[in-house]
């Protein structure tokens, strides 16, 4: 009896996984989205700009810039945040939503950005 009830619960929670996670605020593991169309590195990385600056290029605020960060350093940092190896006020909760491949695409994106303050950028000439 107990066992079948348990199985019922597991099935129900698997079936309604998304709904229950939304209600409780629980994390839907990023791997569940692994077969979705790829989100490009820029789209992922542009979500970081409100804190780290446009294209990761604010050098004068307390949150570190991301532009020009070496690929492997970015990946290590994000994986450590994701796996809660490196405690942080906000970044653990930011990082745990991404798949490993997404972290790598963000790493490629930020590594390719010019590591100069955004305010110095000649936007119309380009460079980004």
């Amino acid at each position: 009896m107990k066992k079948s009830l348990m199985i019922g619960l597991i099935t129900a929670s698997a079936f309604f996984g998304v709904t229950s996670a939304q209600a409780s605020g629980a994390l839907i593991p990023p791997e569940e989205f692994a077969s979705d169309p790829q989100i490009p590195g820029k789209m992922l990385g542009d979500n970081c700009s409100a804190c780290h600056g446009t294209l990761g290029r604010f050098y004068d605020e307390s949150m570190p810039p991301l532009a020009g960060i070496p690929r492997d350093v970015f990946i290590k940092l994000m994986q450590d945040f994701k796996n809660e190896v490196r405690p942080s006020i906000v970044m653990n909760h930011v990082a745990k939503v991404f798949t490993d491949a997404e972290i790598e695409r963000m790493a490629d994106y930020f590594a390719a950005q010019t590591d100069r303050p955004w305010k110095e950028e000649d936007v119309l000439k380009g460079g980004q």
Binding site: S49, A50, G53, F58, E61, S62, M63, V90
Partner: peptide, 13 residues
Amino acid sequence: SLAMNWQRAFRRD
């Protein structure tokens, strides 16, 4: 501090 910093950075972004 994060909140105050975020407000400034966000406005600039």
